[in-house]
Write a protein that binds this DNA or RNA. Structure first.
Lengths: 213, 213
DNA sequence: ACGATGATGTAAGTGTCACTTACTTTCTGG
DNA sequence: CCAGAAAGTAAGTGACACTTACATCATCGT
């Protein structure tokens, strides 16, 4: 009976990386399962029961690891936010700094993430009914947004006031965020718009970060 | 026993405006109740049962008027979309055409609607899991977006190609849509942004509709 | 008037879900 | 090696979406 030899039973203190009792880190397994379910059934269409069923445990088992459904959802959302941040960072670094290429790269990562994982994306940015004020969540969000700020700073002329930086960054965010949701919620065909991302994002960064006309 | 003398018993044909049998147009009453509930409990936190309870009917009664929960939600969303369109139209007509004033007015109506009725707004623009392809819904959406197009046309130089018009209109929509969701989902304090709508929207319309820098 | 008809309502289900409680099993630290 | 915590289970509870079978009532053709 292989217990999926995931158990890295460190004889040390329990620590935060507790793993492998009966099931073999059910906690992480559940987060992954829920992530899949959220994409399959939608953010509100999935059930803890089904996640437990897929993990091969009883429907009460999840509650040994999470207070309630929202707690699982929060973990999935935070994990998604960290992934988004990492991708944004990587692609920004890899991009050509000229012509706002790094800012554009971040925008593409954002929109692509929404398209690739619309369920998780909605969890991350939908209200999730009460996760505002969660300090850990806000911390992760701030870290991710910090990457945007960083690239806007280096895309704008040196010495641009912070006030202006923040304004420009937020304007970009508005656009990219709105574009992402309009895409995944399929509101775009409403007006027969089929603009390629690259063009639109490139034009927007010029218009928003450039000199006002 | 006043049956709330709503009954306008037209002896004519049943027609689409059927009213006042036992309850007195339960259908409309339910839509209104659900609209309230959606704001109180959130788009996925409300229940048909509670709506029926508030309307004073059995929990099975709603299913005489709507196929399922989604059907009620769709009606609420469409009614909201029609109201949004009407407000956009009215405010656009009332606004000063100079300096993209009419386009800005539309943006304000959009954002204000989101803030005033975030629950309904989410219903209108959230995926609602399968209402894409609903022809009536698309028709209402197209009509509302038509107002935007109309005002963008009259804000841009005469003779601007339709392709460009559509591009500009969509860029504006992206921004306003993103701003609305970031506001109602409270993602804005993440980055300590507290920009007044008027400034941001005015600047955006200039940057998006004006000459590229 | 009047009775068939269909629209509108109810009561009593079914199956699922979130979450709880009481209990058992398994791992771990002293 | 054992006390106790951690991790799991079975069996609930109450709410909900939706169904089925039945009751009521306005309306319309006769």
């Amino acid at each position: 009976m292989n217990k999926t030899d995931l158990g890295e039973k460190k004889p040390g203190k329990p620590g935060p990386k507790r793993a492998a009792y009966h099931h073999g880190d059910l906690r992480a397994h559940l987060i992954e399962t829920v992530r899949t379910l959220v994409e399959e059934k939608g953010a509100d269409g999935f059930s803890i029961s089904e996640a437990a069923r897929r993990a091969g445990v009883s429907s009460a088992a999840p509650y040994k690891h999470f207070a309630d459904k929202d707690a699982i959802v929060r973990e999935v959302a935070m994990e998604g936010m960290r992934r988004l941040g990492a991708q944004m960072d990587a692609q920004a670094q890899a991009a050509d700094p000229h012509n706002f290429g790094r800012v554009n790269a971040i925008g593409h990562v954002y929109v692509d993430f929404a398209r690739r994982e619309p369920g998780v994306f909605r969890l991350m940015f939908g209200l999730t009914e009460g996760h505002d004020g969660d300090p850990e969540m806000e911390e992760v969000g701030r870290a991710t947004y910090g990457i945007v700020i960083r690239e806007v700073i280096s895309a704008m002329p040196q010495g641009t006031p912070e006030e202006v930086i923040r304004r420009r960054a937020y304007m970009l965010w508005m656009c990219v965020h709105g574009h992402s949701f309009l895409q995944i919620d399929r509101k775009v065909n409403v007006s027969e718009i089929t603009a390629p991302d690259a063009e639109v994002l490139a034009e927007l960064s010029v218009r928003i970060l450039g000199e006002p006309s």
